[in-house]
């Protein structure tokens, strides 16, 4: 069904917090330079699944998993893999904008600095801010605090901050949920542009958004103790116009969830 060239794959992935299984046997391919949306009701493990891709869940002591998560064909959870290397290649944008309490410039420069970037930092910062469509708004105030920006600007700054480390994949967990419709459209536009160079995975509760921006959509839901099972995965056009599974259809037409 899907053309090959996946950049991220899960194979029979189950994720647990302590004894609680919150993702159940998910096998999924995320394709290179495409936008993949993960949708589903609240609490069905969307964020958890997303955070497996950059090993963000490692920070939670009770977390463990079975199955595999592959990045460019290599298992991310191999003991020899350094999680900080992974996060450097697979960026993440969070639900609430979380700029550091530093200047706009230092926010973007943070990643390159810790990763030992030795090119021209000012150029890289400008390039990242331009890429994130926020350069014109901040170019005269790079030294002012990032916290003086509006929510939508902060979120684009966080995207710029992610781009500055030049990742290949960008994970976004409900990146627009704290933004107004105009800021949301700006971010969606940005995602479409970015998908030419980056592979993007986005978790969203907004069905229209998933339909608008994503190429592929994965629908997760919970049934009994099978929380976070993948019900359907395919091209977004097909999922939203002609879902194969009646549970998907029920969800996208708003009949439950």
């Amino acid at each position: 069904m899907l053309q090959a060239d996946p950049i991220l794959q899960t194979k029979d992935l189950s994720v647990y917090y302590g004894a609680n299984r919150v993702v159940t046997e998910v096998s999924l391919d995320v394709l290179r330079n495409r936008i993949t949306a993960i949708i589903g009701p609240s609490g069905t493990g969307k964020s958890t699944l997303l955070r497996c891709f950059n090993r963000m869940n490692d920070l939670i002591p009770t977390f463990h998993l079975s199955g595999e998560v592959l990045f460019e064909g290599n298992n991310l959870y191999e003991p020899t893999v350094d999680a900080t290397d992974i996060r450097y290649q697979i960026g993440m944008v969070f639900q609430r904008p979380n700029p550091f309490p530093k200047s706009i410039f230092d926010n973007v420069a943070f990643g390159p600095r810790i990763n030992g970037y030795n090119g021209n930092l000012a150029d890289l910062v400008e390039w990242s801010l331009q890429r994130a469509a926020i350069w014109d708004e901040v170019k005269d105030r790079l030294k002012s605090s990032a916290l003086s920006l509006s929510g939508g600007q902060q979120q684009r700054l966080c995207i710029a901050r992610t781009l500055a480390v030049e990742p290949t994949v960008i994970l976004m967990d409900e990146p627009c949920s704290s933004l107004d419709p105009i800021a949301t459209l700006a971010i969606e536009e940005l995602m479409r542009e970015l998908s030419e160079e980056y592979s993007i995975v986005i978790v969203t509760h907004n069905m229209q958004q998933a339909a608008r921006v994503s190429n592929y959509t994965a629908f997760l839901m919970a049934e009994g103790d099978r929380v976070g099972q993948l019900v359907e995965f395919g091209e977004s056009r097909q999922i939203f116009t002609n879902p194969q599974d009646e549970r998907t259809e029920a969800y996208i037409t708003g009949r439950f969830g």
Binding site: N54, M56, L59, T84, D85, R87, Y88, G91, M92, F94, R96, N98, P99, F100, P101, F110, G111, I114, N115, C158, R161, T162, V165
Partner: peptide
């Protein structure tokens, strides 16, 4: 969230 932001950059 600030810590996560930094971890996410490697």
């Amino acid at each position: 969230s600030l810590r996560e932001g930094a971890y996410a950059l490697g």
